[in-house]
């Protein structure tokens, strides 16, 4: 469904992604891990069209989406969340979802919004101001809600479970699993917690200094010496 070929992203002198190739199959849930600054968020930004890569191609559902502007990527079915929640200011929670649905999915469907709000436990807060009146968990849930309202085929979650308490994290992870099954999503999840990754993702890739250094089942990947070394701070040869 998603095929990245030799994606390179440079910021001035810094190369955040280094000729990176990756493919994600339809219906797969992929864990994306790696130390801070490895380039995970940058990869999402490139796929969702926030940045134009310095080189390489992005194919989604068989189509080359590299030239599509950001807003059209949402419309072809790429949904994403932001590591730092980005609610639409001045709007309520429900209005946030309405905008995402109207423009991302193409038409308004109040029943579908109700379902998303229910699934994410936001129903009671739907008329609250999105930017000022949500707790951290609710802000993260809204991030997911906006992405879902777009009716994506691919959902990319950037540390939506980060910073949550262990118990909350487990509940939220179960919610994500429900959501995935309900909407038949392909997912890429950035997450630091190994237990969560093991619970959610049959396949994991590891990014370090803008390069993929491992790809496989969680068991195989987290026992890979190279991966362990990358977390203890060694630079690649």
């Amino acid at each position: 469904m998603l095929e990245l070929d030799a994606i390179t992203m440079r910021f001035g002198g810094l190369t955040a992604l280094h000729a990176m190739s990756l493919s994600v199959a339809e219906g797969e849930t992929l864990g994306l891990v790696g130390p801070n600054g490895a380039g995970k968020t940058t990869l999402f930004n490139v796929i969702s069209g926030v940045y134009a890569p310095s080189g390489g191609t992005i194919r989604f559902g068989g189509q080359d989406v590299g030239a599509l502007p950001q807003w059209k990527r949402a419309r072809v079915g790429i949904g994403r969340t932001f590591q730092i929640p980005q609610p639409m200011r001045e709007l309520t929670v429900r209005e946030n979802l309405r905008v995402a649905q109207r423009f991302g999915a193409g038409k308004e469907d109040p029943a579908a919004l109700d379902e998303i709000l229910d699934l994410l436990g936001l129903a009671h807060k739907q008329h609250a101001d999105a930017a000022t009146s949500l707790a951290l968990t609710e802000q993260k849930a809204l991030e997911v809600g906006k992405a879902l309202a777009v009716r994506p085929r691919l959902l990319m979650l950037d540390e939506v479970l980060g910073g949550l308490e262990m118990a909350t994290k487990r509940t939220f992870a179960r919610t994500l699993e429900t959501v995935r099954a309900r909407f038949g999503l392909t997912m890429v999840i950035i997450e630091h917690d190994i237990e969560t990754i093991k619970a959610l993702c049959p396949r994991v890739v590891v990014l370090n200094f803008g390069q993929l250094i491992a790809d496989g089942t969680p068991e195989a990947v987290f026992n890979d010496p190279q991966v362990i070394r990358s977390y203890t701070g060694d630079t690649p040869a």
Binding site: P69, W71, F82, R89, A100, R102, F103
Partner: peptide, 24 residues
């Protein structure tokens, strides 16, 4: 309308609106 909502949100949250498909 949702157009108005999107426009209102665009001022302070242009990135958040574009990423859900709003052609700002």
């Amino acid at each position: 309308s949702t157009y108005g909502l999107a426009l209102r949100a665009m001022h302070d949250s242009e990135l958040a609106t574009r990423v859900v498909g709003v052609p700002s």
